[in-house]
Design a protein around this nucleic acid. Structure first.
Lengths: 337, 337
DNA sequence: TTGTACGCGTTATCAA
DNA sequence: TTGATAACGCGTACAA
């Protein structure tokens, strides 16, 4: 009998059935070599004794392990959506996920370090605050494939998965142009990692349409507050543009709320667009036209990128660009004539 | 030398320095028995070779382990706040955290099972969909201390950490009463786990004030949509109450947005309160008066509950009630006369 | 179809 | 202050 407090081991299962430990191992790994009857008895005993395999011992002994480390910020809704989809994608491909969170007191580097302690086969970093240089040095030390999701550019050390922010913003511009807008301002927050790509999308689209660019540069983290400041700047002008594009949904939300407080109706007087299609965008009363960054696809692509590097360790890291889709809602309308 | 692809082990560190493996172990565990000079050389080699201890091997060999398993739903903002605070509290007490997410395809039971595979010393379940009965059976099988955060009641199998939802709602009622409100309705969503406690707070407070209770029962998950439906019911009445209390912030938000669309100004015509003090509540333009469920404290209390059970395995599970605090913002005001 | 033997990286107990 | 040695739970050759 066991002491009672120690979880059952394979040896306990084997002893219970009067068979050898390695036979139990065979059955649990679904390998040939055990009779159908033995197989059944083992599974019964596993359930009866509430046996669960010791993951630490497994990774210790196995030649290859099937654990994907994922670094994410619990505070970011967009990232947690991607985490969910990574779970699904990994499960589909027979891998399990080990999470490590970044918080105000835990950096990405700390989180990655922890995952390396678990000997994860690869590490996926979602929306990392680390720049390409820092990630490159991390990738070198880590000695496992690294995949950065959400920002960064093609490089030689790690894979990058990001949405085509330029296309997404360009589609917003085109959507507004089709509605008849010509004076469209863009709220840029350079502090946000993917800001440069999105800004480029705005500038390119405006250029193609032969319209003058009108960029408001705003410092600080790119959240609601940023949109509020942008509204202040716009309201101080002699006349408002007929449409304002924000670089993400949070800024767009701040913009809408601040405009509403100033008595400027959206979309009647000003149309507003965002980027991400976060939960805020879908709130009735906000109902934001935005470029949807599909978290499902981001997660799947990230997992596949990691597995590709695992299958072929010599493969060169790639940049995986996921197409956003335009979500038209009621924050945009034709301009008043 | 190493093969190059295998991460360095303690043996590699020892070989590099020409000392024994167990001396390295002593240094890394901060145990006495190594000279100051050796200690320094070991730490230098650890940094130089990018050594990271094999957590699996540690857990396998150690007598006691210091890993706290945490089950959470990435989709719930409130839960991720608690996750962050658990990281801090656990770190303060020398423990590390292993996360396991629940998604639409992963139940709490699955998540707990995974954590048991890692041989976590205790498991904290945040906002579990499981009822007390299911948790009890899980606790029995798990054979480690279980702590449920967010819902449930005192019981003999696992600790419960929850906010005093009754007090929080009662304070909202009292705050409104002090402003001069007398006709106050409550939006109840029985599907939300802590709904019963919060409703009791409303009923008790109204009773103490000698005011008639006015409860709107709404089915479905307790989100924004629920508030929208509640607004529809209220607007169909001959006259509106002067204040409406919602059981959580999301419902309150739906309520505010729907009232705004119908031309009913908040708080000028109707005051609205919520519960949680989530990110939505703090949005300018929403600026919701609400009972703040302090995630910092919830996390800390949950960790301490787990550690108490660990330190004294015979201890009886407790119910830990965390006091909410009233956050007065601009969604409440004196009623018009 | 089953058992024997070894090792993964670490902790831990000795004695030197 | 250090060096043997055993063990944790499991995977996996190999022999029976």
């Amino acid at each position: 009998m066991t002491t009672g407090s120690r979880p059952p081991t394979m040896a306990d299962i084997a002893a219970d059935l009067g068979i050898s430990r390695q036979l139990v191992s065979l059955v649990l790994r679904e390998q040939p070599g055990a009779s159908a009857q033995t197989r059944e008895r083992v599974l019964e005993a596993v359930a009866r004794l509430d046996y669960s395999p010791h993951v630490g011992a497994q990774v210790l002994r196995r030649s290859e392990n099937r654990h994907l480390g994922v670094v994410f910020a619990p505070a970011h809704a967009t990232e947690t959506d991607i985490v969910e989809s990574i779970y699904r994608a990994a499960a589909d491909r027979g891998h399990s996920v080990v999470l490590s969170a970044t918080t105000s007191t835990r950096t990405s580097a700390t989180a990655v370090q922890e995952l390396l302690g678990y000997r994860c086969a690869a590490v996926i970093l979602i929306g990392s605050d680390l720049g390409t240089r820092a990630l490159t040095s991390l990738a070198k030390r880590a000695n496992v494939p690294l995949v950065a999701v959400g920002a960064g550019r093609r490089n030689t050390s790690h894979d990058v998965v990001r949405s085509a922010g330029d296309d997404g913003i360009a589609w917003c511009v085109e959507h507004l142009a089709e509605l008849g807008h010509r004076r469209m301002a863009y709220v840029n927050g350079p502090a946000m990692p993917p800001a440069a790509v999105r800004l480029a999308g705005y500038l390119g689209a405006m250029d193609r349409l032969g319209l003058p660019a009108d960029v408001l540069e705003l410092p600080g983290d790119y959240t609601e507050e940023c949109g509020t400041s942008a509204a202040r700047l716009l309201l101080a002008r002699a006349d408002l543009p007929t449409a304002v594009l924000a670089g993400n949904d949070q800024a767009a939300l701040g913009l809408i709320l601040a405009l509403a407080r100033a008595g400027v109706a959206v979309p009647r007087k000003v149309s507003v667009t965002g980027y991400d299609d976060s939960r805020f965008a879908r709130l009735s009363g906000v109902d934001l036209t935005t470029a949807r960054q599909d978290p499902q696809q981001m997660g799947r692509v990230a997992v596949d990128a990691a597995l590709r590097r695992l299958a072929d360790p010599g493969a060169r890291p790639r940049e995986h660009i996921v197409a956003p889709t335009l979500q038209v809602r009621s924050s945009t309308a034709a301009p008043r004539r």
